[in-house]
Nucleic acid binder design. Structure first.
Lengths: 116, 116
DNA sequence: CTCGATTGTTACGCAACCGATATAGTGCAG
DNA sequence: CTGCACTATATCGGTTGCGTAACAATCGAG
């Protein structure tokens, strides 16, 4: 089952959800950082700097710096890969999980108030 | 008709769309700037600095600076309100309209590929 | 006309981000 | 063991964003 959405509905949904996010004020976030966060919490582990960089099509330093920021906010954590110590595994945190969950709730809630 | 969406679906939809936006690389954008952009293009004019600031619950300088950036990108334009010259009216541009339209298309397209 | 209120902008000091490059640590083939 | 490939991070100069506070322009009541 594919979800049918008209452009106007889609944009309003995005707008409303982003507005909720801004109000949450945990929102010094960049679009890139948000993208990294969602990738880590929605896609299957393990996540490495290189892997995420490829997915977003940005350079590795961009990811490193974003992880610094997200780490400061305790939304993700870093751990060396014991198997290959060159790798850094990006891990989820309780705070990050709650944050992403809240984002999902916002969007679900906003979707219900969309005009037909 | 309200749109039914499960949290998992909603988050994946957000993730996929944001990823498209990042790839678009017009993506030095802040979440706040994106929020302003969508507000200007989805809500009924006129839009003033003060009005948008209230809606996002941020201070006016934040809006002024965001408009500087968005203006540099030609995604919005500014015009003095002839009726009350203290006001600045935030106006849409061709480039901005195309950009927002693309965002909507991304999201619609992504919605169709969501798992049930 | 005048003065207080309102609008948007600018100035300042600080922190964060960017791209590009250089570097340190690790793995692995030979 | 040696050298090369690969991972992530650190460093550099420059740009941009932030919050707070001061500011100029404009309106409108009295």
């Amino acid at each position: 089952m594919s979800l049918h959405l008209r452009p106007g509905q889609a944009l309003k949904l995005w707008h409303d959800s982003v507005l909720d996010l801004v109000h949450l004020d945990e929102s010094g976030l960049t679009v890139r950082q948000l993208s990294i966060l969602l990738t880590v919490y929605l896609e299957l582990p393990p996540h490495t700097v290189r892997g995420v960089a490829q997915k977003l099509k940005v350079t590795k330093p961009v990811i490193t710096r974003a992880l610094d920021s997200l780490g400061r906010l305790e939304l993700v954590a870093r751990r060396r890969d014991p198997a290959d110590k060159r790798n850094v595994l990006i891990q989820r945190t309780v705070k990050g999980a709650l944050f992403v969950e809240k984002l999902g709730d916002f969007m679900v809630s906003r979707a219900q108030t969309l005009p037909s």
